[in-house]
Design a protein around this nucleic acid. Structure first.
Lengths: 334, 334
DNA sequence: ACTGGTATCGATACCGGTACCGATACCAGC
DNA sequence: GCTGGTATCGGTACCGGTATCGATACCAGT
């Protein structure tokens, strides 16, 4: 009596006085069913509260209406916004997102991808281009659209939506150099696991050295980026290097922490010290001081990735893999 | 040749020289298989890169290893953290979270629940207690563990994990009254759709009136809670009521915006004006000024909800529905 | 040698849908 | 009246696993 009372298609069909097949067609809106039968089946289904079984239909067809989403962390607002974009992108398509969290762990990422594939998803959206060899193999052999997001520095398995992290880092460096800043410091968190933050850092360094400059000092901590960490690291870096005129952070959370430290310490930002974050999170423009940041289209990336999965399921022809590159905008805050 | 090359259990069985059934048992670790056959099957599976098909096993068994998670929004860090807690809670259980976003829309919530149920999930985690009649019916008839989270003010369908939003609002009001604050203002966003924020507001009001006080003014805006909105609304409310000595916000984002306004306007917080947010987000303790907030165990709630789903799948006995109530802590920031 | 018990295995019948293809009905055209 | 075409239907065979239960083998005990 557990699931026994769950209505099946066969029961609906009986109630409507047609075969299972006709009922199936009627409910799916597939062709070859008379108007009157469509109505009969639809009505019976409604009356009986028929819900359908995605497991069965997905198994029977070759593909499920699940779309796998793999992110390093959900507690990070950046990925949460990407998820929101994805949810928005698949709206009304009947696709359902399943997600897996890797915790920035390659081994775990492999397992998550593997597990995801066993659901025969309609597509996979994976964060980043840098998977382990095994994971990459899995993705290459999967006969479904795979969209890698948030990064363009590398070779994607299939489709790719994002922006060049390296270029974004470089662009910010150049913009800051353009304002006359000369003595740079860097504060970052978790660069060993967050490949994208690392690429930005490298892009930054390269641009600086092209201009004959370099980071006077860097403070790279382990663990997650938090406002608190940003505040503490900023306090420390300024204690050691009080003559910095610009601090670059691996993201906005850390930069906000830096801003808070400066406000408390009475440092004038950005006059005496420029702070540069990354992502252009919502709160940045509302801070009491002006900090620089790079506006990244997180929601748009999720949205575009979802559309690609949707699109490649419709027309089966093998077009060349989609590649959507966004151009993040530097915002120095005027 | 699409999915044709995907290895099936039958192929693994042939390679291992056993029947499908034995292979199935060997891979699942079910009993009744000899040591030697277990090894043979496991090895064959590994060599052939067998992945398994969750759709088939879920259809065959009566339940899938999917766990449905329904939240109003993913772009809100609060729910993102709940998701993280859930992900953490089901870690290693083989369960996979599927999520649905309702956008605070009851109609959409119904559809999402419906759609979710058609995956025969092992359990459902739903935000809040206030669903539409139809949606509630769906949940009641689902023969799976349903855990409603984040709210305890109402009658749950089954299990429930969270805290009383109303009590939380009241507790904050009392704490603020205890510090001698007398002239209260309220700033909130989206209260028409966010039932929980509304309950906090009501709890707040009730506590105030028990103390013979009331909100001198309220500024309730539509749309999402953002730092920007908090800043703007605070500016406006103070312009109209400069004599307030306490502003309560529906959450920390708005309160942070308020803090930023005060910093820019040179108002001393909390000496001249106390600000009270809600949730105890990470950044609160790092702000340049001290604001009050209520620490809510978001990750723990997700974790506990996930454990309940896991638990009720193991032992089938019908115990009385779990009910885990947390006691949010007021943090006045000293 | 015969019986009973335990350990191991496999054939079969599903789970709840959908694809495929053949069957049926009905009508226009010659 | 017969043929061919179109519109509708339904039977059957899956999709890739698992539950069930009967079959088989082997061994101890008498």
């Amino acid at each position: 009596m557990d699931q026994k009372n769950r209505i099946t298609l066969a029961e609906v069909a009986v109630a409507a006085g047609v075969s299972k097949m006709t009922a199936s067609r009627a409910l799916r809106g597939a062709g070859d069913v008379s108007r009157s039968n469509i109505d009969k089946v639809r009505q019976a289904a409604r009356q009986m509260g028929y819900v359908g079984n995605h497991l069965a239909s997905s198994l029977s067809g070759q593909r499920s209406s699940l779309i796998g989403v793999i992110v390093p962390s959900t507690a990070n607002i950046v990925f949460a916004e990407v998820l929101a974009g994805i949810a928005e992108g698949i709206e009304g398509s009947g696709l359902q997102p399943v997600f897996g969290v890797t915790d920035y762990d390659l081994e775990k990422e492999y397992e998550v991808i593997r597990n995801m594939l066993s659901w025969n998803p309609a597509g996979l959206i994976v964060t980043g281009l840098d998977q382990s060899r095994d994971a990459r193999l899995l993705l290459e052999n999967a006969k479904i659209p795979v969209v890698q997001i948030m990064d363009m520095d590398g070779v994607p398995v299939d489709a790719c939506v994002g922006f060049s992290q390296r270029a974004a880092g470089g662009a910010m460096a150049e913009a800051l150099l353009g304002t006359g800043r000369k003595r740079f410091g860097y504060v970052g968190c978790g660069l060993d696991a967050d490949f994208r933050a690392k690429k930005r850092f490298e892009g930054f360094q390269e641009a600086l050295s092209r201009a004959g400059r370099t980071f006077e000092t860097t403070r790279i901590a382990e663990g997650f980026s938090t406002v608190k960490a940003g505040r503490e690291l900023t306090s420390k870096i300024l204690e050691a290097n009080p003559d910095l005129d610009c601090i670059c952070y691996s993201n906005d959370d850390l930069a906000a922490g830096g801003a808070f430290h400066c406000i408390s310490a009475g440092l004038s930002v950005p006059e005496a010290l420029t702070l540069a974050g990354f992502n252009g999170l919502e709160f940045v423009k509302s801070l009491p001081v002006t900090i620089a940041t790079t506006l990244t289209p997180r929601r748009e990336i999720g949205h575009a990735a979802a559309r690609i999965v949707l699109g490649s399921n419709r027309d089966e022809q093998v077009e060349k893999p989609a590649r959507i590159e966004f151009e993040p905008k530097i915002d120095l805050g005027v």
